[in-house]
């Protein structure tokens, strides 16, 4: 009756593996279909019965996208904007989160409430006054306009999450350094930031995704084709009368590959985060 330790481990492993495979079907199944559609012709996408791989398997949709200089420009813009937003958001948010996590100051609670709740205003209602503001500041149809806008949307999230991560770290860590004579900035950058890398990476990736996928403001705050981003490029394939299904799918996949690679490269930080000893004190 009693299982050996080894047997129990094996059972647990099969359980975990089964769960992982089940989850993977749920997570990746639709994306697999998307991938398959991107290689089909537009009629085959809707044929019955559906097939994963069809006779007319082709890279036409990809060729069409990769040979169009306008579309490549969309990719460039998206990377530039999303990259800048991620770096700037992280820099600003880490400091703000540090203040929220480690300091008491007048107005802290009010600020907290404000930062959290401003995100709740439906962006669509902000669109009109916001547009006027951006035009007034001379930021219309510029990269800085888009970058600052996205920062406004990503900062509250980043601050809340970073505060959450910093709160999981014992105060003794940085207190000790400060008491030691080092300044707060030193304590933050030398102690807290290095051990918060998993959190920073996850916030960074999400910030990147928000900026990468945003559509409404990207469309409204830019005017010329040279300033458009990938989501607008995808929307342009959804015409008034018809959709370029395979190109929509191909462009989405092309857009996601670099992000996926980025994630794969950065995910080692999830594993090499903290080691037990460095936290306990």
């Amino acid at each position: 009756m009693a299982l050996t330790t080894q047997g129990r481990t094996r059972l647990a492993r099969s359980g975990v593996l089964a769960g992982l495979i089940l989850g993977a079907v749920f997570a990746a199944g639709p994306v697999l279909w998307m991938l398959s559609s991107s290689f089909k012709s537009n009629t085959e996408i809707f044929e019955l019965p559906p097939r994963l791989i069809t006779g007319s398997f082709s890279f036409d949709a990809y060729t069409a996208i990769l040979t169009d200089s306008e579309t490549l420009r969309f990719f460039f813009n998206s990377y530039l904007v999303a990259g800048a937003v991620t770096i700037l958001t992280l820099l600003v948010a880490i400091h703000a989160a540090y203040a929220f996590s480690r300091f008491e100051f007048r107005g802290k609670r009010v600020l907290n409430v404000v930062i959290i709740s401003v995100q709740a205003v439906p962006p669509i209602t902000l669109l009109i006054p916001y547009f006027g503001l951006v035009v007034g500041l001379g930021l219309y149809n510029t990269y800085p306009g888009l970058i600052l806008t996205y920062m406004v949307f990503t900062l509250p999230y980043a601050i809340i999450m970073m505060t959450g991560y910093l709160n999981t770290l014992p105060r003794e860590l940085d207190e000790a350094v400060r008491v030691d004579g080092a300044g707060s900035l030193t304590a933050l950058w030398r102690v807290l930031v290095p051990i918060s890398v998993p959190g920073i990476v996850s916030v960074g990736i999400y910030t990147f995704m928000i900026a990468w996928n945003e559509y409404l403001f990207a469309l409204t705050l830019t005017r010329t084709t040279e300033m458009r981003t990938v989501p607008i490029g995808i929307q342009l394939l959804m015409g008034q009368h018809s959709y370029e299904w395979n190109q929509i799918m191909a462009m989405s996949i092309l857009g996601s590959i670099p992000v996926l690679i980025l994630f794969l490269v950065l995910q080692r930080y999830f594993i090499s985060g903290l080691t037990a000893g460095s936290v306990k004190s």
Binding site: L127, I128, F131, G132, V135, G136, L216, L219, T220, R223, T224, T225, I232, Q235, L236, M238, G239, Q240
Partner: peptide
Amino acid sequence: LVSGPYASTKEQLFAGAAS
């Protein structure tokens, strides 16, 4: 030429008109 997707043209024009 300022070209956008049909589905959002109306919002674009309104935002422009408002400002």
